[in-house]
């Protein structure tokens, strides 16, 4: 991208700490994500993986440490926070589509009101995105009329409509019925192939093995191990990782 070197780390997290009251939720978490890289974060529930990716776009505020996204430091500056949120798209476990808006309105809302895009242009782009996620025929429906898988694909299209440089996925398939997981993962795989920088929190080990460039294992608010999928699944180093993989791949 213009202005930035290609080899620039697009997300830099350095010694990020977060507490909920007395509870230490993130302990010195440091992670760099390169442009076009797909990082999958796994770990048992309560390990802080969701909290971590939610600090990246300031849905959660970290109390110490540094986060820099695409060269923009995440400080208390409103302008920086806005800029980072425009650069990052997020997909939630519960889809969080706006139930009172149609699919197309869901997708065009932010481009029109945040990016100040023309309505016509925004709708054209929205239709392209809907085609990309495979449900152009649902454009005029309300979220409540769609299946879970379709809703999640709309949510991905909605995030992409802001033309983000980074996509954050917070357990995107956890609330889906098994038969719908596949359709969402396919969209995500396609997205990864297209060169999108992605940070994905998931329990889908197949996806992690097939798509991830690196896998991050978190436990008890700490990063325990980082490695390539091959390395990670075949020769895990830490005992905690081994135990987790044993439980999950049984």
């Amino acid at each position: 991208m213009a202005g930035h070197a290609e080899d620039f780390d697009i997300i830099i997290a350095k010694n990020v700490n977060k507490w909920y009251g007395e509870f230490h939720a993130l302990k010195n978490v440091s992670l760099d994500v390169k442009r076009r890289e797909v990082v999958v974060v796994i770990g048992p529930s309560g390990s802080g993986k969701s909290t971590f990716i939610r600090t990246i776009n300031r849905l959660e505020e970290h109390q110490s440490g540094e986060i820099v996204v695409d060269g923009i430091p995440l400080t208390h500056d409103v302008r920086n926070i806005e800029a980072i949120r425009m650069e990052t798209g997020m997909v939630f476990q519960q889809f969080n589509l706006f139930p009172h808006l149609t699919v197309i309105q869901n997708i065009t809302l932010a481009p029109i009101n945040v990016r100040k895009m023309k309505k016509r242009e925004a709708e054209e782009r929205a239709m392209q995105l809907l085609e990309r996620v495979g449900i152009p025929e649902q454009a005029q429906k309300y979220p409540g009329q769609l299946s879970g898988g379709q809703q999640q694909r709309v949510a991905i299209a909605r995030a992409l409509a802001m033309q983000p440089k980074i996509m954050l996925f917070d357990e995107p398939t956890s609330a889906l019925d098994p038969e719908m997981i596949r359709e969402v993962l396919e969209v995500m795989e396609e997205l990864a192939e297209s060169g999108m920088t992605m940070v994905v929190v998931t329990h889908e080990m197949g996806f992690a093995r097939g798509v991830a460039d690196r896998i991050v294992f978190m436990d008890a608010g700490e990063i325990v191990e980082i490695g390539t999928p091959e390395h990670f699944f075949t020769t895990p180093q830490h005992d905690r990782t081994k135990l987790f993989l044993e439980q999950i791949l049984k």
Partner: peptide
Amino acid sequence: MTSSTLAHTRPPFYRDTRTIA
């Protein structure tokens, strides 16, 4: 430009989430 210098710039008070409130 490096991240470490940018991260420590204090925003003006009217843009700082802590002071806005």
